[in-house]
Design a protein around this nucleic acid. Structure first.
Lengths: 233, 233
DNA sequence: GTAATAGTGTCTATGAGACACTATGCG
DNA sequence: CGCATAGTGTCTCATAGACACTATTAC
């Protein structure tokens, strides 16, 4: 057993439990930004919903605990690298004892999230981030931080969460960004901001009413897992 | 003992040790941004320095653990509300066992930091953030995140960390911001950015060579502890 | 007066918003 | 053709940088 400078091992220090709680965000076809909620286990009241979470297992990384919680609590298998938001450490925040919770955000395409909601409609639901209902603990603040985080990432870069499959049109891209931003965006200044990060494929979208839109792919494209809070500054 | 939905108590889950590590930043009179380092306890090599840190005690909040570590490791008594930066969770990051570390940043006025360095020069030192020397673990990344964090806070607001006592002149303020930014700033555009957040006291600074500078105080002044990562967005 | 520092008026480049205008498909 | 949607040229406004210019003190 390793000992530190006071001759103590790590087991001699009291250790809190560590949990992860995750805001899974997605863009609904209607153009709203929605968050995934799961029914609270063992809840006394009906309609008791919460963000999916779990306790960190031995030797497990935080990101892996997030992935495990999403699979266990919501049946989500395809997830991307979660991003940390904040550690909540209020000693009274869990009545079972001292629990630190590391809040995370994960953004997923609509189909992936909609499929699990359809599979388990009694246990899993989606709510617009502007109307999440009554939630436990500090979960509304986690959602607020999650939304702030991904809004900041969407300001300069086209679909940094890769919600759209390539190639896509500028109007498609704009609709995703409008859902994230929670407001409509000017087509012209949106185009100016985004085209430096896009490459024209020369193809156009077929079969729609109106003038066909040009199809683009991302350039300088970072993979979703690369994006961290720090990249923004 | 409280039990959860699986009939387990919290003690049935393995718990990691939780530590805090803190980058204490200050602005030296020479105009450099510096970080406080402490000599590693029980270090085998000489010149083994690290950011001050400690293990979280039972029932203790993270911010209180930060304050305690700064007093114990560096003799710093006057500290302000620390801000969280990131949780480092690499399972191999501490050879004594599984340790999560929550990185923080604290910004303090020069006199406060200089006093403790003078009191314990063998155990405590300051280094420019651009040249920290060889550090253990993930400490250089913590410093990088700390600097990014406070640079972002200084972009729009005059001296958000209250390093200057009121009233102060615009050139004094600019010198602080230049140290934080790590580069010189245009006097005129700096003035334009800052004056909306300042109130002219009508007084001027006496006794210096050259035209006397007008003294200002902050308006809309949040207290240091109020500022969080989220306020920036 | 000169030296030194504080403060400002103004030009220019950049980028966002607004908005009207053009372009190109479908029926 | 008309309708619907995509895309652009251009004006205006706000802001940052650059830089020369003025202002006010000590000596």
């Amino acid at each position: 057993m390793k000992r530190d400078s006071s001759g103590k091992t790590l087991a001699d220090y009291p250790r809190p439990s560590v949990a992860v709680d995750t805001a899974v965000l997605t863009v609904a076809p209607g153009g709203t930004l929605e968050v995934l909620l799961v029914r609270r286990e063992g809840a006394r009241q009906k309609d008791a919903w919460a963000l999916p979470g779990t306790f960190l297992h031995e030797g497990e990384r935080l990101a892996d605990a997030v992935r495990r919680s999403l699979e266990q609590k919501a049946g989500l298998r395809e997830t991307r690298t979660p991003r940390q938001l904040h550690v909540f450490d209020d000693p009274g925040r869990d009545d079972r004892g001292r629990v630190l919770s590391v809040a995370h955000v994960v953004v997923l395409p609509w189909d992936v999230v909609a499929a699990v909601v359809e599979a388990r409609p009694d246990d899993v639901r989606l709510r617009p981030v502007t109307d999440v209902g009554r939630l436990r603990f500090d979960h509304p603040e986690i959602i607020e931080r999650a939304v702030d985080e991904i809004r900041a990432d969407h300001r300069e870069r086209p679909d940094p969460e890769r919600l759209l499959a390539e190639p896509f049109t500028l109007p498609q891209l704009r609709r995703v960004h409008e859902a994230v931003a929670g407001r409509s965006l000017q087509p012209d200044s949106f185009r100016r901001r985004m085209t430096p990060h896009l490459r024209d494929t020369g193809e156009t979208q077929e079969g729609a009413v109106g003038r066909p839109a040009v199809l683009y792919v991302r350039v300088n494209g970072r993979r979703p897992g690369d994006a961290t809070e720090r990249d923004r500054r």
